[in-house]
Design a protein around this nucleic acid. Structure first.
Lengths: 121, 121
DNA sequence: CCTTAATATAGCCAATTAGCAATATAGCTA
DNA sequence: TAGCTATATTGCTAATTGGCTATATTAAGG
């Protein structure tokens, strides 16, 4: 077992890479839920959902309570703030590519008048 | 192999889950680079980096040019805008308890920044 | 042409992962 | 206590992944 300790971002991005887990988060955005609540909408076995929950918990994206034999799951958005922060460092780059795209569209429109545009891709 | 077509978000999150790939993006935030440029800072073999680049390209996060025997790699931030939008749906959940969160975010950013934040200076 | 440089591809391995069914545990309730 | 319900754990499999070395490809330059 050589495994370097995964950083928080590693765990969070990995957790978010699975559509089932994102759907679970979406459900939790509407409020706390039991495991069975979370199983219901999917065509997946209960242990499978429990496993997904463990991954989400490991990433800090959910926390568990205890109420009788229920272990309510609730959304913890903290790590998403971390992702948001990380992404913030790149915001300028998609603003910029948007500008480039706009410029490109303008070019196409300009060439439209001269009816002879070469394909350059 | 029944594999449902991974959504863009699946691919992007999965690509971002690896610290080497995030570091590559951080490097590309400073400008186009050749594969060798990207190999240099890591203690990884060139084919390993090429594989990472293929993952990033599959997610739409980088694109490749061609110039002699070089295949310059450049950042494509578009997909990050998609992530930003997805995350936007959860912003309210951390806005609520901003105070407690601030320290937490600072902590994990401190951990990550040195490793793979884009340099914007 | 032949060599060198930049990159890609192939093939291998170990670790991880998403899924399942079966079973165990924990806490009500009768 | 017994039984029922909610959830966790175990143990399996197939697929995927990150790493490597060795080799192939592509383009420049002598």
């Amino acid at each position: 077992m050589v495994a370097a300790p995964s950083s928080q971002l590693d765990l969070v991005f990995a957790a978010l890479a699975d559509p089932t887990r994102r759907a679970i988060l979406a459900r939790l955005a509407q409020g706390e839920a039991t495991v069975n609540d979370l199983v219901a909408p999917f065509d997946l076995a209960q242990p499978t959902i429990s496993k997904h929950l463990k991954v989400l918990e490991g990433a800090g994206l959910v926390s568990r309570g205890r109420s009788a034999q229920f272990r309510p799951v609730r959304l913890e958005a903290g790590p998403l703030a971390g992702v948001d922060q990380w992404i913030g460092g790149y915001r300028q780059f998609w603003a910029q590519s948007h500008d480039r795209l706009e410029a490109y569209v303008k070019t196409l429109q300009a060439e439209e008048t001269s009816r002879d545009a070469p394909q350059d891709d």
